[in-house]
Computed example of a mutant assay.
Amino acid sequence: MDLDVIERIHHITLTSEEDQPIPVRAVHREKILEEYSLSLIGKFLSTRPVNLKAAKNILRSEWKLGSDLKIIDVGNGLLQFKFTLESQLQWVWDNGPWSFDNNILALQRWEKGLTVRTVVFKSLPMWVQVWGLPFDLINEEAGLDIGRGLGSVVEVDCRALASD
């Protein structure tokens, strides 16, 4: 496209008739919103292309959902994971982080009004192991302090500290 065409495109204006809002009927919108409410939006954090067909098969298998899980490519590298039950969605959310082929899958809960352009992944839950701590710092309080130094703490796993 030459610069003259680009310049003309930038100067396009709408007439008063064209500048009117277009009404959109909300037919079945409540049902659709309910269906979308059981969705996660995800993106593989990768610098190279991801084999989406293989990734979808692996995730369905790991999450033990099979055909109950609908995975839709919504564009811009984003996937929509549509669940049948809230408990399925919550299990996936609580048991991450998830990855495929060494590419981490960032997830966000779907919200009304969300678009491909407005999806922002602000945080990613990670398990962090700290090795070589002095014995007197191997406790829940130290784990909380270390976790807070890295970000938000979801949980400190103290099972390794429990004695038989």
Rank of each mutant, 00 (worst) to 15 (best):
M1F: 01
D2G: 09
D4V: 13
V5E: 04
V5C: 03
I9M: 02
T13E: 13
I22N: 10
V24A: 03
R25M: 01
R25Y: 00
R25T: 03
A26Y: 01
V27R: 01
V27Y: 00
E30P: 02
I32H: 12
E34H: 01
Y36H: 00
L45H: 02
T47R: 13
A55G: 15
R60Q: 04
E62V: 13
L65D: 14
L65P: 14
D68H: 05
D68E: 06
L69C: 03
K70M: 10
G75S: 12
G77H: 08
G77W: 05
L78H: 15
Q80C: 11
F81N: 01
T84N: 02
E86Q: 00
E86A: 00
E86T: 00
S87H: 05
Q88H: 09
W91R: 14
G96M: 08
P97F: 06
W98A: 04
F100A: 07
D101W: 07
N103W: 04
A106M: 14
A106W: 13
Q108C: 03
R109G: 09
R109T: 12
W110G: 07
E111A: 02
K112S: 05
K112Y: 06
L114C: 07
T115Q: 14
T115P: 12
V119D: 09
V119R: 06
V119A: 11
V120Y: 10
K122A: 08
S123D: 13
L124R: 08
L124M: 10
P125D: 06
M126R: 06
M126Q: 05
M126L: 06
V128H: 03
Q129I: 07
G132A: 01
G132K: 01
L133N: 04
F135E: 08
L137Q: 12
I138Q: 15
L144A: 02
D145C: 06
G147A: 03
R148D: 10
R148V: 11
S152T: 08
V153Q: 08
V153R: 05
D157M: 13
C158R: 12
R159D: 11
L161F: 15
A162Y: 12
D164K: 10
